[in-house]
C-alpha cells in the first residue's frame, strides 16, 4: 500500500508538469487548430533564459517570472510575425514553421548558452535535502519538491481556469475556440485573441520547463523533448481542445508512467521494464482510449458536413 501511494504521488508531480505543457498546446489548438511542435523547444529556450538570469544574480523564482514574461512576448511575436501570415499561405505552412521553430530554438539554445549540450546546473525551487519529506501512512514518503511542483502547477491551472471561466478575455477565448465566425460577429477581435493564446501558451511552457529543470537540477538540450512528447500525448488523451482534458490527461500519464516504471521493478527486482517501456505502455493505453473516443476523453466531436 505504501508503495502504491508513493508511486501515485510521485507520478502526480511529474504528470502535473505534463499537464502544464499540455495546457499550452491546448490553448493554441483551441484557437487556431494548430499543433505547436515547437512548444517544448520554446519552453527549453525560456528555461535557459531563466538559468541565465539566475546566473546573473537574480533570485531563481524571480528569474523564472522574468523568463515567463519574456516568453509571453516572444510567443505573441511568433504568432503575429510568422504563424498568422503563414496561415494565409497554405494549410501546410504552419506545420512546417513550427517544425522550423523546433529546430531553430533548440540550436539557438545550444549557440547562446555555453555548456547547454552537456547540461547546466539548474537551481532548486523547493527544499530538496535528502531529509525534506513528509511521512505518510504505510511507510510512504512524499518529498517536498514533489509537493511543491504539484501545488505550483495546481495553482497555475486554477488561475488559468479562472481566466477562462470568469474573465471577459477568457470568454472571448472560449468564443473563438467554439465558433470563430460568431465570435467575430459578436465583436471579438479574434486576431488579438489568437496572439494572446500564443503568448499565454509560451509563458505556461516556460514555467513548465523551469519546473522540469528544477526537479532534474539540470537543463540540457534534450530536457524538453521527452516531456513535450508526453505532454502532447496527454493533450491527445484528454482531447486537444479541452483544458480539463489536458490536466486529467497529464496527471494520468504521470501516474501510469510511475506505476509501470516502479511496480515490475519491485515485483521482480528487475529493471527490465525501464522508463522507456513505461512510455510505450502509456502510449498503448492512449491508443486504446482513442479508439473508443477518437477525440480524447473530453474533446469535442464536431459533426462533419458533406
Amino acid at each position: 500500500m505504501g508503495h502504491l501511494l508513493q508511486y501515485v504521488l510521485n507520478g502526480l508531480a511529474r504528470g502535473s508538469i505534463y499537464s502544464l505543457i499540455a495546457l499550452g498546446l491546448v490553448v493554441i489548438y483551441r484557437g487556431t487548430g494548430h499543433l505547436n511542435f515547437a512548444q517544448g523547444e520554446m519552453a527549453l529556450f525560456a528555461t535557459f533564459g531563466a538559468w541565465w538570469i539566475n546566473d546573473h544574480g537574480v533570485p531563481l523564482w524571480l528569474a523564472i517570472m522574468i523568463a515567463a514574461g519574456g516568453a509571453f512576448v516572444v510567443g505573441g511575436v511568433i504568432e503575429f510575425g510568422l504563424i498568422r501570415p503563414a496561415g494565409k499561405k497554405s494549410p501546410f505552412a504552419v506545420v512546417v514553421i513550427t517544425i522550423g521553430l523546433f529546430q531553430a530554438f533548440n540550436s539557438l539554445s545550444g549557440l547562446l548558452f555555453k555548456g547547454a549540450a552537456t547540461g547546466l546546473p539548474f537551481g532548486t525551487l523547493f527544499p530538496n535535502k535528502p531529509t525534506d519529506f513528509f511521512r505518510l501512512p504505510g511507510g510512504a514518503i512524499w518529498r517536498y519538491e514533489y509537493v511543491g511542483v504539484l501545488v505550483t502547477v495546481l495553482v497555475i491551472t486554477a488561475l488559468l481556469f479562472l481566466l477562462f471561466q470568469k474573465t471577459k478575455v477568457g470568454l472571448a477565448m472560449r468564443m473563438v475556440a467554439n465558433n470563430p465566425d460568431s465570435a467575430k460577429l459578436a465583436g471579438v477581435p479574434t486576431n488579438k485573441i489568437l496572439m494572446l493564446s500564443w503568448a499565454l501558451s509560451a509563458s505556461i511552457g516556460a514555467i513548465g520547463g523551469c519546473l522540469v529543470a528544477g526537479i532534474n537540477a539540470n537543463v540540457n538540450l534534450g530536457t524538453m523533448f521527452g516531456v513535450f512528447l508526453l505532454a502532447s500525448a496527454a493533450a491527445t488523451l484528454g482531447g486537444l481542445d479541452s483544458p480539463l482534458g489536458a490536466v486529467v490527461g497529464g496527471l494520468s500519464l504521470g501516474v501510469i508512467e510511475s506505476l509501470v516504471t516502479n511496480y515490475p521493478k519491485s515485483w521482480w527486482g528487475s529493471t527490465y521494464i525501464g522508463a522507456d517501456t513505461a512510455i510505450a505502455v502509456a502510449f498503448l493505453i492512449i491508443l486504446v482510449v482513442l479508439l473508443v473516443r477518437p477525440s480524447g476523453l473530453f474533446g469535442s466531436t464536431r459533426v462533419e458536413r458533406v
Binding site: P85, Q103, A104, L111
Partner: peptide
C-alpha cells in the same frame, strides 16, 4: 553548431517564399 539553426531559419523563410 550554427548549421542546424540556419537550417531551421531557412525552412521558415522558405515557407514564405514557396508555401
Amino acid at each position: 553548431p550554427v548549421a542546424s539553426f540556419l537550417l531551421g531559419v531557412l525552412v521558415i523563410v522558405f515557407v514564405f517564399i514557396a508555401p
